[in-house]
């Protein structure tokens, strides 16, 4: 990888692989089509095969809860920081859950330093919907004193290596980090109006649901590619993302792109995605 395509090849095998690399750069679509015609994907997976996932929790001591997820080469770290804030007037008993995903310039050459890219904004919003709307944690459990003091959970994820399907990896990292989070026991003092916490006693959060997601790419209107890589993503006609909880019950289905129409065929596609997502969720739940 590091040598790049400019290196002079020494052996015939190296020359072949160099030719393949150049072809991949110049004609990415044809490159992918030729693989798919042989019923295999460029990284050697079958269409419905997922990449290996590993999960590591609690390794960051400065965070109240943390998780590191590797999905294939995609790497996401997530840390939870608990802070205290005043609740909103119309929801005096509800805390805040603030999920954000950062796609820094380090994770891929397609991102530039600076404010969040459009992709990061869209992903953060979808993560917010998946977490807040699905009720992963009841916001009233974050209340310390009604109307005066509540917990704010900042769930910040940073992508270290962007090799495709960041949404699935980040959602898993966020749920795992929340599950790992221990917040200090807090009490509100009415006289001074201050909230004080105990350094010794920390309590875990009570999560009510464990959402996990499964993303699929639709290529050429008929081929469903599970867990698309960064190379496949821009070539896809459409992506379908299915979020399910531990039951597995459906939380959301999100389809974007041209490939999904209202014909009978495409309904079958979505149904196939949903049933595959349920199977995938069983595997991911084991890690949590």
């Amino acid at each position: 990888m590091s040598a790049g395509p400019s290196a002079v090849p020494d052996s015939p095998a190296e020359a072949d692989s160099l030719r393949a690399q150049i072809f991949q750069r110049l004609h990415p679509r044809a490159y992918l089509e030729r693989f798919l015609a042989e019923n295999v994907r460029p990284d050697g997976r079958a269409f419905s095969e997922w990449r290996d996932v590993s999960l590591n929790v609690g390794s960051i001591s400065t965070a109240d809860g943390s998780a590191l997820v590797r999905m294939g080469d995609t790497t996401v770290v997530c840390g939870v920081k608990a802070e205290i804030a005043e609740p909103e007037l119309d929801h005096p008993d509800e805390g805040y859950l603030v999920p954000n995903l950062d796609l820094p310039a380090m994770c891929s050459s397609k991102f530039k330093p600076g404010p969040p890219t459009e992709e990061a904004q869209v992903l953060s919003d979808r993560l917010n919907q998946a977490l807040v709307m699905s009720g992963v944690i009841s916001l009233s459990s974050l209340c310390i004193h009604s109307g005066r003091s509540v917990w704010t959970l900042y769930v910040d994820a940073t992508c270290i290596n962007y090799a495709g399907n960041a949404f699935d990896a980040t959602l898993l990292a966020m749920v795992a980090a929340l599950k790992n989070t221990r917040i200090p026991q807090a009490s509100f003092d009415e006289e001074s109006g201050r909230t004080v916490c105990s350094r010794k006693n920390r309590v875990p959060l009570t999560l009510s649901r464990f959402p996990t997601s499964a993303s699929f790419g639709i290529f050429d209107a008929s081929q469903i590619l599970a867990d698309p890589t960064a190379f496949e993503e821009p070539l896809l006609d459409a992506t379908v993302c299915v979020v399910v909880d531990e039951e597995p019950e459906l939380i959301s289905v999100n389809g974007v792109g041209l490939g999904i129409t209202t014909t009978v065929d495409s309904q079958k596609t979505i149904q196939a995605c949903i049933s595959a997502a349920k199977n995938r969720s069983l595997e991911l739940q084991k890690l949590l």
């Binding site: 920081k81 608990a82 802070e83 205290i84 804030a85 005043e86 609740p87 909103e88 805040y96 603030v98 999920p99 954000n100 404010p115 969040p116 904004q121 953060s124 919003d125 917010n128 704010t152 900042y154 200090p184 807090a186 201050r194 909230t195 004080v196 916490c197 105990s198 350094r199 010794k200």
Partner: peptide, 16 residues
Amino acid sequence: RRINGPEDSYPPIFEE
């Protein structure tokens, strides 16, 4: 461009 929390929040203050 980000999901925003409350306007103001502060880290926990500890007794000891």
